[in-house]
């Protein structure tokens, strides 16, 4: 595959993922908005692990930190850990049927959300409600569709 061509596609999909991350939704839908950037990043790390690595994940995480007004390094930390797991197991994961992949995605998202919860509590204990955990489920449910969409984008 042409390298710069695929780099551009990675860039554009991540751009749209970041837009989706902050897109305005109604009060009922907003808590369901999953971590699009992480999902897209997971896809690319599974599809072309040779060109998407931990360094990319880390820099992207820093950007998302600024975008969402988090403390520096939160998303960078989480993204690099999750992408590391994806890179280690990408051969097995690519063989999995989509349902099993979704289970893996569920674990990734759960892990990232747990870390977020932990980061929130490091500085001062904060209140969270049940809706804090909703993006994990919406992300898992959306994964098959994201997977199909991204695959068709990759094969364009």
């Amino acid at each position: 595959m042409n390298n710069s061509y695929s780099a551009m596609r990675i860039f554009i999909t991540l751009f749209f993922a970041m837009c989706l991350r902050i897109t305005p939704l109604s009060d009922t839908l907003a808590p369901l908005n999953p971590d699009w950037v992480l999902l897209v990043l997971i896809y690319w790390s599974l599809a072309i692990p040779e060109s998407v690595g931990i360094a990319h994940a880390w820099f992207l995480g820093i950007l998302v930190d600024v975008l969402l007004g988090r403390h520096f390094g939160q998303n960078a930390f989480i993204y690099s850990l999750v992408i590391y797991a994806c890179l280690v197991w990408h051969k097995q994961l690519r063989q999995f049927p989509v349902v099993q992949q979704s289970a893996f995605i569920f674990l990734c998202l759960l892990f990232s959300q747990l870390l977020f919860f932990w980061f929130k509590n490091v500085h001062a204990s904060v209140q969270i409600t049940g809706i804090f955990w909703l993006p994990i489920f919406s992300g898992t449910v959306l994964w098959p569709f994201i997977y199909q969409l991204m695959r068709s984008i990759r094969r364009l």
Partner: peptide, 13 residues
Amino acid sequence: RLLIAIIASITLL
């Protein structure tokens, strides 16, 4: 690389 990334993010944090 993971180690570098983790150390870097924790330092930043």
